[in-house]
Write a protein that binds this DNA or RNA. Structure first.
Lengths: 182, 182
DNA sequence: GACAATACGGAGACTGTCTCCGTTTAGCAA
DNA sequence: TTGCTAAACGGAGACAGTCTCCGTATTGTC
């Protein structure tokens, strides 16, 4: 990639991250282009769809997911605590931007989605936590990590759309956890 | 209301119901106006916001909710069956239109939402089912009908956004039910 | 049949998406 | 350096959707 192209691409992503944080994932793309000091054509050349841009914005965030899962796994406590702790982190992770939970959870399991790789990272992180608990024979074994990701994602989506406080989300996650544990 | 106004209003709602069914809740309102043979101004006078129109479209559907809850309550079987049956009906009810689950569940608990009354009907129907099961000492009593509505609504939202088959939704509802039962 | 009051409707302002294409620039080779 | 070409730029503008304003038309009443 040419140096100027790389420069523009980076700036667009940087601006997009900030604008998405302030206005949510449905912010105007032309506005992002303008703020980044490029024309709309440049933005759309680099990122043909909104999801492609979102994917780029999320890139930095991916590493954080693995790390968070590691922490959850190292968490002291009984299986219920471990699971709940992971659920809360999961919700936090996908709720960084308004509209994020719906976007991510909706794309979960969609092979063709531009943010597919991000979903896979989340799902596999979730899978790791689940596997450890399964090894302890703590969770039922007829559930897939995809189902769990969707269930927790569903709670996060509702919480995002209704502007719920974490304190209001917790009891819902507890019900999920209790349904999953043996 | 003047006779012509009533006529137009009815026709708009009728057309909207059909268009929403075909295209989802984010269909163009000007298109609905055109199909109903009125100007956009007329549509917006009757229904200042999209949600107001959606609310009107849902009106016919409300009676059906009560009836469905009655059927769920009369359902033969153990508490888990009753609960699961109701959950499946609930998901079906709010998934009539694409985008419906998110719309309804997002508005749940929002006092200012134009579709508030619809949410209340759903929530109270859910409350009735829950109350009966509580009377049988079958479900935990630290959960509200709002929480349950949100949990099941969350599953429905994800299912709607990912175009999941009912068969894929069922296991998720089972987890919810198991988390709710004592 | 006249006159308010009420309702209509469509032109058009505004916002956001996305493309096309003439212009500019980076990078390389002579 | 200079010249060349592929790559990239950017902004005008086509298009679609939302929503309003206001001149016109219709209704129902006295």
């Amino acid at each position: 990639m040419r140096a100027d192209a790389q420069r523009n691409r980076d700036r667009i992503v940087e601006v997009a991250r900030q604008v998405f944080r302030e206005q949510g994932y449905d912010a105007s793309l032309d506005l992002i282009a303008k703020q980044a000091g490029v024309g709309p054509g440049t933005l759309y050349r680099h990122f043909p769809s909104r999801d492609d841009l979102i994917d780029a914005v999320m890139q930095a965030w991916v590493d954080h997911v693995e790390e968070t899962a590691d922490k959850a796994l190292a968490h002291e406590g009984d299986p219920r605590d471990v699971l709940l702790n992971w659920f809360e982190e999961y919700v936090r992770l996908i709720s960084v931007h308004k509209g994020g939970p719906a976007k991510i959870t909706g794309a979960m399991g969609d092979e063709a989605s531009p943010i597919r790789t991000k979903c896979q990272v989340l799902q596999s992180a979730s899978g790791r936590v689940l596997d450890q608990l399964r090894a302890e024979d703590a969770v039922r074994d007829d559930v897939s990590s995809l189902q769990v990701a969707r269930l927790v994602g569903g709670v996060a989506t509702v919480a995002d759309q209704s502007d719920l406080e974490p304190a209001a989300v917790r009891p819902m996650l507890e019900i999920l956890a209790d349904g999953l544990l043996k």
